[in-house]
Computed example of a mutant assay.
Amino acid sequence: MTIRVTVWNENVHEQKNRLVASVYPEGIHGTIAEALNEDPAIRATTATLQEPEHGLTDDRLAQTDVLFWWGHCAHGEVADHVVDRVCNAVWSGMGLVFLHSAHFSKPFKRLMGSPCNLTWREAGERERLWITAPNHPITAGLSGHFELEHEEMYGEPFGVPEPLETVFVSWFAGGEVFRSGLTYRRGAGNIFYFRPGHETYPTYFDANVRRVMVNAAHWAANPAARIADPSAAPNVPVHEALEPIEERGPRLHEAGEAGYR
């Protein structure tokens, strides 16, 4: 089965910052999609903030098995009705991978139900990512740890709910540590948060980071049919759920006697 991925990006830094444009001439979204498309089982396309409906219409999300989300400076520009649409898709069974500063995006905050705040420092420090779940599908093909020579520091405390699994823990040259790979399940949807990816560093060209993203796409994809209305709370009338007591009584009595014979 081909995994259909949509890579969403604000696409703001690339247009306003020459350094970012030089690092990611095809945009961060283009580089991530390229990495995912190296796997023949994945078909990745892109969407950006500037498109109508931010490129995330109902039809687009219905055709997306896993959504990747990169955001940083334009969280507030994402329309609330699009956030509702994305969350409904997750509850219905779409996978969602949040990257780097997407921890502060509207969809992540909504799905976590928490502030999602943290400490940070942009100083181009070395990051070592330790694998804390060596048998997890997201860490397949990796061993022990890997390093990124230059990254933005994220530090604890990280204001998120307790995850299902902590897949990576990062250490930074300044001494801080951070839970940098976390899994969640919301409704029928699988969610993975992955920390690396500051816009001024070539993180998404790193072979280990690209392997994690491919693995995450496979892990987050849910082959089951989507739930049609994940927020429904249907009432089941009594006559559909239960027989009248007087009709059930004799049969229960007979069943009970049969059990002792």
Rank of each mutant, 00 (worst) to 15 (best):
G197Q: 02
Y184R: 05
E257R: 04
P244S: 11
A79L: 06
A44C: 01
V209L: 00
E10R: 07
N208K: 04
A140C: 07
W70Y: 11
F104Q: 07
H198M: 04
P25E: 11
V177T: 14
A140Y: 03
E26W: 05
A173E: 15
S105V: 01
Q50T: 15
Y260Q: 14
K16Q: 10
F158D: 08
R248P: 01
E243F: 08
I191T: 15
C87H: 03
P163K: 10
P230Q: 07
E162S: 12
T183G: 04
T166R: 14
V160H: 03
G93Y: 00
N9A: 09
E199K: 12
L67M: 08
V214I: 11
F104R: 08
A21N: 15
T119C: 04
C73H: 11
H81Q: 09
A233D: 14
L96A: 11
L118G: 02
P244K: 10
G189H: 01
A140H: 04
E257I: 04
V5E: 13
E53I: 11
A79R: 05
A207W: 14
A173W: 11
T31I: 09
A232G: 06
S143C: 05
W8Y: 10
W171R: 13
T57G: 13
G174Q: 12
A216T: 02
G174D: 13
P137A: 07
E149H: 13
T200N: 10
H100C: 04
F68I: 02
V23Y: 01
G187R: 03
I227D: 06
H103N: 13
H72P: 04
P157C: 02
V7A: 12
T57W: 15
L164C: 11
V238E: 15
T31L: 07
R186H: 07
F158R: 06
E246K: 13
D39R: 00
I32N: 02
I3N: 08
D80K: 05
D59H: 13
